[in-house]
């Protein structure tokens, strides 16, 4: 279970998150929607302290931190329970696909090399890259790189995987392969929080949609309900802007 309470974050004087409360059950697939600048990505990055929140509490599984007082140890504990898939993939450029997945297992989890290798090979096969173990990121397409990124996140066996616009940097024809991998692991019951603009994906896969605007959660709920009969005017406006008429008339 993940619980966020009163998360606040500002960049300089500009408030980005104005007190976010959110509860996410184990195995839920949460999609965060919202216009750009609404703080979706910032919220995701606050969860593993790539941005340090100014205030609030974060609970991931059995571990809870107060953001104000969190030190190196607490941040490390939080990061061990989360994993992230980045918009720009951020694969380690000097390491092969296999080494990318193994890195965390070897360095952080301190697994013996053979075991780490076995697990990593399995995961790469799962994302359909069993034949690309020794390829460097520069030799892979964007879609393949992102699938390695997903395998790297899975390897850590985290409580939750954070997806930061995982398909935004991809060529349109490569989006499908990445989404289908995410779909596949969503079915396995891994908790995930996904920031995306893929409405179709949100509707098919998510069982919890959060709509954010101006650093606040405007509305949340089951996708069927939220897409068909949004309560808030701002949600309605947003949905109308990004989806053609009739698509979400369920």
């Amino acid at each position: 279970m993940i619980r966020l309470q009163g998360i606040e974050k500002s960049f300089g004087r500009h408030p980005m998150l104005k007190g976010i409360d959110l509860e996410i059950g184990t195995g839920e697939v949460v999609v965060i929607l919202g216009p750009s600048g609404s703080g979706k990505t910032t919220l995701l990055r606050c969860l593993n302290f790539l941005e340090k929140p100014n205030a609030g509490r974060i609970r991931v599984g059995d571990y809870e931190v107060d953001c104000r007082t969190a030190g190196k140890k607490e941040i490390q504990q939080l990061r061990l329970r989360t994993a992230m898939v980045f918009q720009q993939y951020n694969l380690f450029r000097h390491k092969t696909a296999l080494e990318n997945v193994m890195e965390g297992l070897l360095v952080v989890r301190k697994l013996p090399k053979r075991e780490a290798r076995e697990q990593s090979v399995q995961l790469l096969e799962k994302v359909g890259l069993g034949g690309k173990l020794d390829a460097y990121p520069s030799q892979l397409s964007g879609g393949q790189q992102q699938r390695v990124g997903i395998a790297r996140a899975l390897a850590l066996n985290p409580e939750v995987i954070l997806f930061d616009e995982p398909t935004s940097a991809l060529d349109p024809e490569l989006v499908g392969e990445v989404l289908s991998v995410i779909r596949k692991i969503a079915k396995e019951g891994i908790t995930m929080i996904v920031v995306t603009h893929e409405m179709g994906f949100a509707q098919d896969v998510a069982n919890h949609v959060v709509f954010m605007d101006e650093g606040k959660v405007v509305e949340e709920g089951h996708p069927n309900r939220l897409f068909s009969s949004p309560k808030e005017e701002r949600t309605r406006q947003f949905l109308k802007r990004i989806t053609p008429d009739g698509v979400y008339s369920i």
Partner: peptide, 10 residues
């Protein structure tokens, strides 16, 4: 992003 990825894996 390389550093962020490193932090994100712990």
């Amino acid at each position: 992003g390389q550093v962020e990825a490193a932090y994100s894996v712990g």
